[in-house]
Design a protein around this nucleic acid. Structure first.
Length: 172
DNA sequence: CCCTGATTCGC
DNA sequence: GCGAATCAGG
């Protein structure tokens, strides 16, 4: 996945709006949060208002010269995720923003499960209860994918459901 | 443990 | 330039 003008634009916008790198990565799709952060730095728009904390790095002695030259790089699993982007979920997440191009993003490899579009009566103890759309609307449905034991949502929706909360507690 | 951004450095 | 690994912290 390369950084097209469009994607960079989105990155800038979302970053300026205060979204976390991982959230932006999820929006863009196909990139990790590290990729986003790296790009942000390269674009020199790191600051975003205030410095988080006067952190001072530079402590690590990189195991370069003296260490074993063996390629210790770990070929981390490149996740072959293939799913549909949860447009409605994104909507809920950014309900206050105009939303222009985020939802017309190519839905190729975003880490969002395909909604099973269950109705209320179809929910069980193990179905994700993430709502899709307006509860008053005809098309309203629930995600319905398998929910872990840790909550009423599937893995993905647990994150986008709870992450912003802890974020607002901390940052805003 | 979850997360955050920051930095380094092999590619 | 890119981004995984790592770091430092909440």
């Amino acid at each position: 996945m390369n950084w097209t003008d469009e994607r960079v634009e989105t990155l800038k916008k979302l970053w300026a709006e205060g979204l976390s790198a991982s959230q932006i990565a999820a929006q863009l799709g196909g990139v990790s949060r590290n990729a986003v952060i790296g790009k942000v730095h390269r674009l020199k728009l790191s600051s975003r208002g205030r410095a988080a904390s006067p952190r001072t790095r530079q402590k690590k002695a990189p195991q370069a010269t003296t260490n074993a030259p063996s390629t210790a790089r770990r070929p981390r699993n490149t996740r072959p995720v293939t799913a549909t982007i949860g447009a409605t979920a994104l909507q809920a997440q950014f309900e206050e923003e105009p939303v222009a191009r985020t939802y017309l993003r190519p839905v190729s490899d975003v880490v969002v499960p395909i909604s099973r579009k269950l109705s209320l009566v179809q929910l069980t103890e193990v179905t994700c209860k993430w709502p899709n759309g307006d509860p008053l609307s005809e098309e309203f449905s629930f995600c319905g994918n398998e929910a872990g034991e840790s909550g009423p949502y599937c893995n993905y929706h647990s994150r986008i459901a709870y992450q912003p909360v802890s974020e607002r507690r901390r940052a805003r």
